[in-house]
Design a protein around this nucleic acid. Structure first.
Lengths: 131, 131
DNA sequence: GCTACTGTAATAGTCAGATATTACAGCGAC
DNA sequence: GTCGCTGTAATATCTGACTATTACAGTAGC
């Protein structure tokens, strides 16, 4: 599992890890029963502290996405796929709503928003394929 | 000037105030030379600490949006309109980009995003008119 | 049983954002 | 000059996010 952390996207690091795992499960990069990277491994990989990864994993357990097998690691829970697929668009939707709320409040027009979205989307998806 | 603060939109309060003022100048709610609410007044109005408002106003001065007339208050600077109109879409664009970046990274399709945007925009603009 | 790996937890420290409180200097009106 | 407003600044305190470090218990492989 490859996990990019973006320090200035507004979300705390542990929250980004949670979302990464959920998205990975949702799109099949992580299969039920599969082990996620160990806290120490992911901590090194993302240049983040062990506790931060542990916190993310702890919350993922509480949400039923991961199962802990002490001494062995953490595996994707049976119910994870359903949970994560349901969350997939909701996670994006919530952040999107917050941005659009600001736009509406300040009389940005629907046309301007659509233009911004298309514009940014285009740039990002190009950048993504060239990475 | 009416200023809504949303504690859970990810942006710090002082940043939200800065943006509010800029948007207000950009769309003509605040005219050049006009006084913004005093730090104490806005602090009470938004249920926020005086220091937080002061910090926002300080940054707005540094950016050339406000002029301080000590003992009298803070007025919208002559250059403000131009600055704020240029910033108007950029402020939205930056937040939008961060959300879309996450979406692209996790294989959300362009169609899904457009649907989300239209959907959320529709709901928000309805809510906005009924407020 | 030893080693090496797991997760988990406690502790202490740093940093940014925000609060509460107090104080001070400048302007304007009376 | 005094009163009431303005911005500005310093202080202490709180919280959440994050880091660094250490420690401990469980599992697997040898």
């Amino acid at each position: 599992m490859i996990c990019h952390i973006d320090p200035d996207n507004g979300l705390p690091i542990y929250e980004q890890i949670i979302r990464h795992v959920k998205f990975a499960v949702a799109n099949g990069s992580l299969i039920i029963g599969e082990h996620v990277p160990s806290v120490r491994e992911l901590a090194v990989q993302t240049a983040v502290n062990v506790n931060t990864v542990a916190r993310a994993y702890r919350e993922l357990q509480q949400q039923g996405v991961l199962n802990s097998i002490r001494g062995t690691g953490l595996a994707v829970a049976p119910a994870a796929a359903e949970i994560c697929q349901q969350d997939r668009l909701t996670m994006i939707r919530q952040r999107l709503r917050s941005v659009l709320k600001e736009a509406v409040q300040h009389q940005i027009s629907a046309d301007e928003i659509r233009k911004l979205v298309d514009d940014e989307w285009h740039q990002l998806s190009q950048k993504d394929t060239t990475d």
